[in-house]
């Protein structure tokens, strides 16, 4: 097993684990964490799997770079919304997840 393949597998584990976290957590900030870890796992799979057996590939790396920026945008947006939501409702979870 080479490093690329290995990191792809790590990505798989990260993705599955974070997905579990995403689905089970109700605290929105924790979900955001999970989202970011999932994203990380996905990026690892994208780059690792593409490079597995073929050597470095700038294209998936560029894609991941874009993906990172998108992810941070999404995270920031989510935090903004969450903070506004918290200000209004004193709650950090969605209404249906409360109680």
């Amino acid at each position: 097993m080479n490093a690329d393949r290995l990191y792809a597998y790590v990505g798989v584990v990260l993705f599955a684990m974070a997905m579990y976290a995403f689905l089970t957590h109700t605290h929105l900030l924790r979900r955001l964490l999970a989202f970011n870890v999932m994203g990380g796992g996905t990026f690892l799979i994208l780059v690792g799997l593409a490079q597995d057996g073929r050597g470095p590939d700038p294209v998936p790396q560029a894609l991941v770079l874009t993906g990172i920026v998108v992810a941070v945008s999404a995270t920031a947006l989510a935090i903004i919304l969450l903070r506004r939501w918290f200000a209004l409702s004193r709650s950090t979870a969605l209404p249906e997840d409360q109680s």
Binding site: V12, V13, F15, A16, M19, Y20, L23, T24, I45
Partner: peptide, 12 residues
């Protein structure tokens, strides 16, 4: 969630 995650993981 566990089953789904494991399933996705195994499938991947």
């Amino acid at each position: 969630a566990g089953v789904a995650s494991v399933a996705v993981g195994i499938a991947l």
